[in-house]
Design a protein around this nucleic acid. Sequence first.
DNA 1: CAGTTTGTTCATTTTTTCTTGAACGAACTG
DNA 2: CAGTTCGTTCAAGAAAAAATGAACAAACTG
Lengths: 179, 179
Amino acid sequence: MAVQLTTLADAAPATAEQAELSALEVEVVDLFVNALRLLGMPRSLGEIYGLLFISPVALTLDDLVTRLKISKGSASQGIKMLKQIGAVKATYVSGDRRDHFTAETELKKLAVGFLNGQVLPHLDAGESRMGRLKALQHENSSADASVETRAFYEARLKKLDQWRNRALELAPLLGRILD
Amino acid sequence: MAVQLTTLADAAPATAEQAELSALEVEVVDLFVNALRLLGMPRSLGEIYGLLFISPVALTLDDLVTRLKISKGSASQGIKMLKQIGAVKATYVSGDRRDHFTAETELKKLAVGFLNGQVLPHLDAGESRMGRLKALQHENSSADASVETRAFYEARLKKLDQWRNRALELAPLLGRILD
DNA sequence: CAGTTTGTTCATTTTTTCTTGAACGAACTG
DNA sequence: CAGTTCGTTCAAGAAAAAATGAACAAACTG
């Protein structure tokens, strides 16, 4: 029955469902959209995380769709990614079958999640890559290279490896600092 | 007897101008394309930086164009950006009017350049933003909010400010660690 | 069961970002 | 100077990334 839709109209139903974002919400969402873009994440992630961050109550997928005016698909994929990096968690709400999402706001957890999800995989892949590089360098050297050139390549590859190690050291350090 | 070429200078046209990239170069370029993408930088930046990184001699704009098969426009803009963040510097070569570029390979300098160019501006903009947020929060609160809601907003904004300060502290720390 | 509700997936469309290349100015060159 | 070379800029086209929405599956409901 259409009559049940009355909840939308007036009395704020337990789960804050005004269709429009408040000025505060808009500002916060905007802030996160910009911040996450800096990390190369899509707009929708910023919107979703931002709204959850400033929301006093856990929100459902549908809340996100109606309030942010994004598609169900976007909301679903965005939540998926945010859960992956540990920026959002689902909370249980009794008597409601739907998932309710909350923003994780501990900076340390966010940072660690991001590092583990986005950065470390690449650094790990870097190991086998270094192997390939060394091999290529040797092949290459035997052919044309002068002593200096050979030394130069050697030095550069060593530098790459240093970088990688630095980055690997840095990750746990970051975690400690952000406590 | 084969002509002996002791310097790379006259191995081929004076400034190492084989049109094709060697396998080693391809691999390095690919590595940097991927790494820079992680930081949200365009493909061409990775290509340019990668080739400069592994090149024993400084390269001209034209070298980049022919070897990477990118347009003059891309090369020019890419170099411009890389110079901006301090990842590339122009070196003087006597008797040649053209600019010759070299990769900056000190990790610290790279990191600092990136932080100053890409991150700090945002954090600074964040200050005025925080002001706006506080203002909005007060407006907002007077209207509808219950005590708990008000407290919640307050807490969140405080958290945001904490984050910002943490990030600001972190930047110089990073510099020190990367020595 | 048949019918809902909830959430995911993925081909398509839309939007954003990047690259290109032609036009241009500045700085050399003979 | 007239002609080059070198590098930059920017409108337009190409490519990549993200959002949409319809189709689907899974879990509930009566």
